[in-house]
């Protein structure tokens, strides 16, 4: 009897630091089982061999920042049965989306002797701005456990079990003392989607919002609470302008503070 066809998985990189792909390679305990369970058809960071599409599952890391990427993502979408955007860049634009509030041409002129050789888009945008995305896995970097859960669920034909709750719930499950209440630190935990296991507060730091705003993130309540803790409102705006700073909830909250400051 011929061996059953394995599910093919391809990994593609857009504008990003490769950190999410590295998380896949960092699955030390599960990587061999994963490589046995699926056919890794295209994953340049892991192997040279590239199989042609179409692919059952495509993982896309990075944001769309160049005209070339804007075309490439459309082709990849055509080759993908299921397209999963992984990480803060692919789901929210990433740190490079900070330029979305600025004049990129000016940056290019300041940095490069010949900016005319650069081909870039005025904004760095998430994958879902360009093509239909079937599933988003958040984080900077993406959570290994969530990637594995998503692939496992797909292989078994069930819905992936992904959290929707805030970071606060994980802090309390971990027994971590709330840094906002006990230290008066700025923290995005109450509105940030869980996924990191509440890493920063467990190290005595406020949450940076790496996994982005949770569904229904209540910025109207958190922002005044943060501003009451820190005299300079720009600190709150800067905290919101991090790797998921282009996610609409965070971007709007930060922009309204910056606009208010500009008027002063």
């Amino acid at each position: 009897m011929p061996a059953p066809c394995k599910t093919t998985v391809a990994v593609f990189k857009f504008s990003s630091c490769d950190g999410c792909q590295l998380q896949l390679l960092n699955m030390e305990d599960e990587l061999l089982a994963l490589a046995g369970a699926v056919e890794i058809a295209n994953f340049l960071e892991a192997r040279r061999r590239v199989l042609p599409g179409p692919y059952d599952v495509v993982l896309v890391e990075g944001s769309v920042s160049t005209p070339h990427e804007a075309e490439l993502i459309k082709k990849i979408r055509e080759e993908a049965k299921i397209l999963i955007a992984i990480g803060a860049c692919a789901t929210a634009g990433g740190i490079q989306a900070l330029r979305n509030r600025a004049d990129v041409d000016e940056f290019a002129r300041a940095v490069y002797p010949h900016p005319e050789y650069l081909h870039y888009l005025p904004k760095a945008t998430p994958i879902s701005d360009h093509v239909k995305v079937d599933l988003e896995l958040y984080g900077c970097p993406v959570s290994r456990a969530e990637v594995l859960e998503a692939i496992t669920a797909l292989l078994q034909g069930r819905k992936p079990n992904l959290p929707q709750h805030s970071v606060c719930l994980d802090c309390k499950r971990n027994g971590t003392v709330c840094v906002m209440v006990s230290k008066g630190m700025l923290c995005l935990g109450p509105v940030t989607r869980s996924g990191c296991g509440a890493l920063c507060p467990s190290c005595g730091r406020g949450c940076y919002g790496c996994f982005g705003p949770q569904p229904g993130a209540d910025m109207n309540t958190l922002v005044p609470a943060l501003r009451a803790l820190e005299k300079d409102p720009r600190e709150t705006a800067r905290l919101l302008s991090h790797v998921t700073g282009f996610a609409p909830a965070f971007a709007q909250a930060a922009e309204s503070i910056f606009a208010e400051e500009k008027k002063k």
């Binding site: 089982a33 994963l34 496992t152 805030s166 606060c168 719930l169 935990g189 509105v191 209540d218």
Partner: peptide, 24 residues
């Protein structure tokens, strides 16, 4: 903000979820 902190620090709140972690 619906952050859930109140219910988790409450010594009487007892709600839980069960989650299945399946192998590949």
């Amino acid at each position: 903000m619906s952050c859930a902190s109140c219910t988790l620090v409450c010594p009487t709140c007892f709600c839980w979820d069960t989650q299945d972690h399946t192998s590949l």
